[in-house]
Design a binder for these strands. Structure first.
Lengths: 216, 216
DNA sequence: TTATGAATTAACCAATTGGTTAGTTAATAA
DNA sequence: TTATTAACTAACCAATTGGTTAATTCATAA
């Protein structure tokens, strides 16, 4: 092996790492193989030595990204904390991940804007949803279990939990997905983005909490 | 003029119409000038006769699309209806537009996924937000006026209205933006999408209504 | 009828693109 | 030492791309 085992990343790993950056920046069609090679400081031919073609690199990049996204979003605890804290926990998980990985999120959004063609083609989503840990899994998802208990005990009214999760996630994610809109029209000063997110979290907690406590 | 005035659209209009379709399908980099010409059944050179280059066609397509989006989203009435009806009205406007123009929405999403580079570059968003009719305009927006009145009368608690609008729109739009995810993981059967949206509307109305009525 | 400019076309082009290939270097095992 | 294979490189290539151009058709006005 001429593979340099001293360096942190193998050539194959480097390719994926910088391919992700390139795809994030330009999408599939706009991504350039030469630019990926340049970013990774390797010969372009290596891309085709380790991967069949551009599509395959994209596929592996997508899978890697989506795996990271899901791994982050399933970290919901089993603890039986008060409802307000549980809602905060869910919001925090989504918001924190979005804050820390804006580029990952953007590629997911890019894929969604294309109708999720490749997500479905590569079975990326299906594999993920089978996971016992997936929060939207109505049988095993921790969020479902928690709120089902709270509905039975009467602490919250009867609600459709899939809708609740979508509503919470939707409110949080909107802040990140439509960020260019908000900043362009001056909803907040770009430098105040973190402050805006903090405000938004508090707003969502209160809205949802009152919303699910309200009379049946 | 050799321009065929019998047909419904002029050549220039045809170009924009089919360019939009192409950009919606493939994004900027994936769009092909030849394919636009083929779709419009004109000679490729006509694209460069009426427009400077690809970028310019994209720019005009973006502006046209965004204009349509905004024109639809500002159609909020002035009527002083009950709060529940007003929330329903807002939700309906967003949901109806998204249902009727899934492709337009996808291009907006595509642009957002790119960080809204071109939206800001072409000043598309800024021009729009200046509009007196823009619902997010805190001084003149009809939604602001309506809810401010309701806050003063005590019918709802004091809330940040920008956040309220983002929350409502976010919950509605999530249903469309993340549609590939929901269908892949089986939140509903793809054929039941309309039913899902109907359910979602009802869910959001109730959540928001209880959420803004709740104690201060 | 004819002159004029706008609209349209087919053929073309330079540059870029994803992908290949023949040959070289480096590591390992016998 | 040497044979073998994996890792790597530079040069190359066919196909595609956005964009151009010179020539032609068409409509209109004088």
């Amino acid at each position: 092996m001429a593979n340099n085992t001293n360096t942190k990343y193998s050539t194959k790993e480097k390719i994926l790492k910088y391919a992700i950056k390139e795809f994030l920046e330009y999408g599939f069609y706009g991504a350039r193989m030469q630019r990926i090679a340049d970013k990774a400081k390797i010969n372009k031919a290596m891309l085709f030595y380790y991967y069949k073609n551009k599509k395959q690199i994209y596929k592996e990049a997508l899978m890697s990204i989506f795996k990271t996204v899901v791994e982050n979003l399933i970290n919901i605890s089993d603890e039986d904390v008060p409802i307000e804290d549980k809602i905060k926990e869910i919001i925090d998980i989504y918001a924190d991940f979005a804050s820390k990985n804006p580029d990952y999120l953007r590629l997911v959004q890019y894929e969604f804007s294309r109708g999720g063609k490749d997500f479905t083609k590569y079975n990326i989503l299906k594999d993920v949803s089978k996971s016992q840990l997936f929060p939207l899994n109505p049988d095993t998802g921790k969020i479902f279990k928690y709120f089902n208990k709270k509905m039975k005990s009467g602490e919250i009214r009867n609600i459709n939990l899939a809708h609740l999760i979508i509503s919470i996630a939707g409110q949080v994610m909107a802040s990140f997905f439509a960020r260019p809109l908000f900043e362009a029209i001056g909803v907040y000063k770009p430098s105040d983005f973190d402050k805006f997110i903090k405000e938004r979290k508090e707003f969502i907690v209160k809205l949802v909490l009152d919303g699910i406590r309200g009379g049946n």
